[in-house]
């Protein structure tokens, strides 16, 4: 049961196409898991549909329809039998990882915590975090916005408990120490539009090497 959802402004940003790629990845991954947010997103898209529909058309060239048919090369509309996909990661995330959870190329970052940076465009970064059960991620604040989506396991901080599918939205005001819940490791997708700042000296020195 997902309790922590995306904000309206994230959904509007995704619908209008104004979010950085890393944030779009997190939104698409959460929406894949959450019917409530899928419905909210599709409602936002309806505004885009209304805007498109109200555009005064720009004339297409005379040959444009023929050119489009040529693009299709006589193919019929696709009939794909879609099978439910097994696995931990929803499709948009698998596209960035190149596979499911077992395909992630983890790098240790100390204290048993591992991470994998995903390739996204400038302006924001995305990484997967693997936090052993009961382990704390170093206490850190944020200079920008950080979103954390739980994929498996759970974590807790002073504000709440976050289980699979839940999104934590942390801004500059939140200083927190997320701790993976006992029982199983927590795997999550974290995106941020600014470098994290760790409060201890050692992590701060390591920061340029960790690229976080």
């Amino acid at each position: 049961m997902i309790r922590h959802h995306l904000s309206d402004s994230l959904l509007t940003g995704y619908s209008t196409g104004s979010l950085p790629e890393a944030f779009s990845l997190l939104v698409a991954t959460h929406v894949s898991l959450c019917d409530e947010c899928r419905a909210r997103l599709e409602a936002q898209d309806a505004v885009g549909g209304a805007v498109l529909d109200s555009c005064d058309g720009a004339a297409m060239s005379d040959s444009s329809f023929a050119a489009t048919l040529a693009l299709l090369g006589g193919a019929s509309p696709e009939r794909e039998a879609r099978e439910p996909v097994e696995g931990v990661f929803p499709a948009p995330l698998r596209d960035y990882v190149g596979g499911d959870a077992d395909a992630v190329r983890w790098r240790p970052v100390g204290g048993g915590v591992r991470q994998a940076i995903l390739p996204t465009a400038k302006g924001a970064s995305a990484r997967l975090l693997y936090i052993p059960a009961g382990t704390a991620v170093p206490d850190h604040g944020h200079t920008g916005t950080e979103l954390t989506l739980v994929l498996s396991g759970a974590f807790e901080d002073a504000t709440d408990h976050f289980g699979p599918g839940d999104v934590e939205i942390a801004d500059e005001d939140l200083e927190h120490t997320p701790v993976a819940a006992l029982g199983e490791p927590c795997i999550c997708l974290a995106v941020t539009d600014a470098p994290l700042r760790f409060n201890g000296l050692i992590p701060r020195l390591l920061q340029p090497f960790l690229k976080i």
Binding site: E21, S24, A28, T29, R38, V85, P92, A121
Partner: peptide, 22 residues
């Protein structure tokens, strides 16, 4: 159609990948 056009716009004008929900 708007969602298809928007995704195409992001591909072309921003040259970013566009992650889509499953």
């Amino acid at each position: 159609i708007f969602t298809i056009a928007r995704n195409r716009r992001i591909d072309i004008l921003r040259r970013d990948r566009r992650p889509e929900p499953q």
